[in-house]
Design a binder for these strands. Structure first.
Lengths: 206, 206, 206, 206
DNA sequence: GATGAATGAGGGTTCATTCAT
DNA sequence: GATGAATGAACCCTCATTCAT
């Protein structure tokens, strides 16, 4: 019953700890020692499993992408009415960002580094073609039903849907400071969600 | 004709170098040595002028805020027709982000650190009340003229205006990778600008 | 047909890999992981067979000595005319060094460590008494035949014979650099071999 | 009267300590911490002055070459009778190796690494052209005087002169072990010196 | 005999900062 | 104001070795 009994679990714990550390301090500010301590693992094991700090970051990032895409697929958007599908996707994304601020942090770090890690990952690219495909079909259905205008690009649409809440949430600390207001108050969040849904519907109607 | 002949200029060069370094590597990844080297200054001078690394970061951040607010004021939005004023603000912001990616980087770093630097700055808070005031008046004018719906909060409005392009630009590296498409192509940028302006108008009409 | 089917072969492969690694990087620079990888063996096996890194080094060194002494015995110097015997030994040694640079490397490492490993090896000492005995008899035969001067010590003689080419070959990299010349060019090597043989004959004639 | 008062001296002490450490343990086995401790310096200063471990090794090696060449020039061989000049050079080299075993150690390390450091040094190459020139002139004088045979290459000659004692001294530890005899006994050393001088004269006479 | 997982000590290197001048 | 030299703590990473199976 020693610690090493369950390798998969140790691997997992390391990834968990790394995600938290990277989210909290960024890639440059993250400390390998802290990750090992949080994971209850020997520092050497990070390297054993993930090669180095960058490998660990990529693994954390890939996992985060996999998780959001997986949760997204569970929405089964393809079975919903087109307008409802997009509304659901937007609210899901908003809620996901709210519940998983670490995902936004990792994205910020990766963009700071100009996606140098992602560039080496095949997995992530493959992960996103189903999403684009689904959106394209929703748009097509909406267009055929005469409720969406044509010529909308699915990738641009996704960026609008996800981006609508991103700035608000990713920059909540600076925005709260410069405007002297708590953006995370429940009422403020609810108002924001409503506002976004309205914007989306207005933007797509034919 | 010694190097030290112009103190103000040296101070300025250090801040310039620091901004570039922080933007490129983040706060944690930035190196004091590189900043000094880029500035052509002795490392000791950074401390003489700015206290420490965090003081330097705050100075860089404050200056960035001052610059965008100053450029904004030059738009003289208060003299424009309400709808045009908001359209102009949105396009200005989009262009400003495009031309000054270092600003977005500093914002990302500061949010990673939960606005710990900004919290110590009075200057920045004072800097933003005129902006809120201006927006509030634009909204009032539009409402009185019957072209804007009522009940719109100026801070929420600003976040919508600025945020519309933020996700697209701040996350351009990861988005380009996961979707396998160059988001910075001139045509893509132009399409995005048009799309954003349309969204805004649709969202506010009464 | 499992991997472990032939223990002796695995042992052998480990020793082979270790010799190459020690020769290439020295004892201090050699990596146990690389040895295991090159041998296609589990790291634990190195310890199972050889105790530790130093044990492995000693085994590699002992084997190298055994090999050169064995090849030397195959010359059957005791059946040759004395002058020819020594000439043959010198050229054999030169060729052996040329063909087995790893032997010279191991010797250099062991001397850096002041022969700490060899000191623990009985095998190696026993391995060399036949060589000294053979040389002593060659010298005696030459002296009796009136072609060699007397008073020559067999150990000193061996050092002269082996050393003649050693510096040239063991230091070929630095010598090539400081003199800006390729010492390993075929013509240079041939000239060196001739030169050495001449030196030897001249040095021993009565 | 603090420690930092004399930078040149600190630099020098570091180089001194590094030379000893590299000689004793080889490049791979040398420890930066030990070098700093021996030099009584902060570890950081090694990097401040020499860049990294390899830079430090190269500096040590270059200095060793500079020293032996400098001592060599002090012999003023060009003013001696040709045979005497070469005899003096050989004995000088033998004595130098005896007194500076660290030089041989550094050479062994550098050859283990295939002269990777030397390859980056211009200084060392330039350092050796005067030596070759001097030897060439000695050979020419001896040939004109009818005491040396012609066609001797100065570089090959130097390798013979230096190499004669090199193997004996660089490999003294292994040789002493395998032959069970102390090669560093005064009588043995004297005998070796005599033997080498004899070999040289015999080898060059016309 | 053989294996993947695990370990603690220490490797070279770099950090932000400060000293004396 | 400005400088080169110096510092100690901590950085990421790797080492030879051993554990449980």
């Amino acid at each position: 019953m020693r610690k090493g009994r369950d390798p998969a679990r140790n691997r997992e714990r390391i990834l968990r700890a790394a995600t938290a550390e990277f989210a909290r301090h960024g890639l440059g500010g993250a400390r390998v020692d802290r990750i090992a301590a949080r994971a209850g693992a020997n520092k050497r094991m990070l390297y054993y499993y993930y090669g180095n700090k960058d490998g660990l970051f990529l693994a954390a990032l890939e996992e985060q992408y996999a998780r959001i895409r997986s949760a997204e697929r569970a929405l089964e958007l393809e079975h919903l009415e087109p307008r409802e599908a997009l509304r659901r996707l937007m609210l899901f994304t908003w809620d996901y960002y709210l519940d998983h601020p670490e995902f936004m942090s990792l994205l910020a770090s990766e963009n700071l580094h100009r996606a140098g890690h992602l560039r080496k990952s095949r997995r992530v690219r493959e992960m996103h073609s189903p999403l684009v495909k689904t959106l394209r079909e929703i748009l097509r259905r909406g267009e055929r039903a005469g409720i969406f205008r044509g010529g909308v690009d699915p990738v641009q649409l996704y960026i609008s849907i996800a981006g609508e809440g991103y700035f608000y949430l990713s920059n909540r600390y600076t925005l709260s400071q410069i405007f002297g207001r708590d953006l995370m108050a429940p009422r403020a969040l609810a108002a924001r969600a409503r506002h976004m849904a309205d914007m989306l519907v207005a933007a797509l109607r034919s």
